[in-house]
Design a protein around this nucleic acid. Structure first.
Length: 398
RNA sequence: GGGGGGUUGCCCGAGUGGUCAAAGGGAGCGGGCUGUAAACCCGCCGGCUCAGCCUACAGUGGUUCAAAUCCACUACCCCCCA
């Protein structure tokens, strides 16, 4: 199957540059493509995964990835989709973020085949006047002002500083540099980057008379309209120290019915026939599809063993057979139930613990047999505490 | 540089001297129903040593018996003019 069709079948394609040319470029092996990541955080999260998986797919299809860490662009801040000016981060933070994110990419990509560059390398030493003369002349302010990201900010009276306004030029320039240095002729990015990516395509065309290509991936939201990978507790990170494999497993297991098929396609390696099979499931059967999703997606991020362990732990926890595989927190005993709940992180505060208890949501024991009605109930030994139907933690003496 | 408007709880947003931990909505949480789903119904929803106390309405300082509400200064944001 043609790589482009494979991507489409899995739902990775939102927009592309003219398809015939793109298709042709993708047909010849060894096409070099790039994706940029702005290292604004010290861990990737599930929200980044569409891009990461798109790279994975393309690499498996024989394309050669160039991974651009946006050390330079991160210092400017992309206004796309942002309602306010992004906070500027320091070069030290960027460097440390780049380092920790790199390790996470290794799970998804064959790093031996990946070219790593940091655009700080060429962006940070640009001469302002030269840049204006050589690059800036190719850009129309009229157009930029009409771009979706600028327009939104302008319309809503939110202001758009000059530094952010320039992001477009910098990203376009990246494409030019990468084309010159590595023969990159495809850029992949989120659909909110469409305008920025086209800027690069256009710049290469004007300055090198070469046609290069672009694919954007859809901006994935959940069926109830939230950003992918966000929970009330924050993002679902790939760093196991920030989001445990168990919690990630639960995140995938608890996706909405309507998201299952889409997510399976995007976030797992399953074959298309297998995807169709799972996609045909309806009603309660979807639980099986969700389990596959959770298992597969967690395995990609943390390895098959960790995924299996998370699965086992989840099964045990919800079947009343919780053992030490289940999320555990050490708390100094004896103490009151409310304190244990708060200190273990099961709930955010003792106030919340009291509320849950008052409302009848707190139960004790792996089997959930004992309903707690007194927040001062004393805990003396190891036990499993439930807050509501889905959250539980095993308390052990500190 | 000049003139005007704004900054409220996780978010949006009312409130213009006491009855304000602060209307309303959203998010979130708990219960019911269910499939560890959605929708729906009911309840909760700053913290704590919880019939009480503490912290909060950008920051600081003031006026007052009493301020989110009045005054002054500071910071940030937006608009118009130059």
């Amino acid at each position: 199957m043609h790589p482009l069709d494979a991507l489409k079948a899995r739902g990775f394609v939102a927009q592309t540059t003219p398809e015939d040319a793109l298709r042709g470029a993708l047909s010849s092996p060894g096409l070099v493509f790039y994706i940029g990541f702005d290292p604004t955080g010290d861990s990737l999260h599930v929200g980044h995964l569409v891009q990461v998986m798109a790279m994975r797919r393309l690499q498996q299809a024989g394309c050669k990835p160039v991974l651009v860490q946006g050390g330079g662009t991160a210092m400017v801040g992309d206004p796309s989709g942002k309602s306010e000016m992004r906070q500027l981060i320091t070069p030290e933070e960027i460097a440390s973020n780049v380092a920790s994110q790199k390790a996470q990419f290794a799970r998804f990509l064959d790093l031996d085949e990946v070219t790593w560059v940091d655009n700080a390398e060429w962006l940070c030493q640009l001469g302002y006047v030269d840049f204006l003369r050589d690059i800036g002349r190719h850009f129309s302010v009229n157009q930029m002002i009409k771009s979706e990201s600028a327009k939104q900010r302008l319309d809503r009276d939110q202001g758009l500083s000059f530094i952010e306004f320039n992001y477009h030029l910098l990203q376009s320039y990246d494409y030019l540099v990468l084309h010159d240095r590595f023969d990159v002729s495809l850029q992949v990015g989120g659909n909110d980057q469409w305008f920025n990516i086209l800027g690069g395509v256009e710049l290469v065309r004007r300055m090198r008379q070469r046609q290069v290509h672009a694919i954007t991936t859809p901006l994935v939201t959940t069926a109830d309209g939230k950003k992918m990978g966000k929970t009330e507790k924050g993002a679902v990170f790939l760093d196991p120290a920030k989001t445990s494999p168990f919690d990630m497993f639960q995140y995938w297991l608890n996706v909405h019915d309507e998201d299952v098929d889409r997510f399976l396609r995007l976030y797992t390696d399953l074959s298309l026939p297998r995807l169709d099979e799972l996609g045909a499931l309806r009603g309660a059967e979807l639980r099986d599809a969700k389990r596959v999703l959770a298992r597969e997606a967690t395995a990609l991020a943390h390895g098959a063993d960790a995924a299996r362990a998370a699965d086992d732990a989840a099964r045990k926890l919800f079947s009343g057979a919780a053992d030490d595989s289940v999320p555990t927190a050490a708390v100094a005993l004896p103490t009151t139930i409310a304190t244990a709940m708060a200190e273990s992180g099961l709930v955010k505060s003792r106030g919340e613990a009291r509320r849950v208890i008052k409302q009848g949501g707190c139960r004790l024991g792996a089997d959930r047999k004992t309903r707690v009605s007194d927040h001062e109930l004393e805990l003396t030994a190891e036990t499993v505490i439930w807050a509501g139907k889905k959250r539980a933690i095993r308390i052990v003496p500190a």
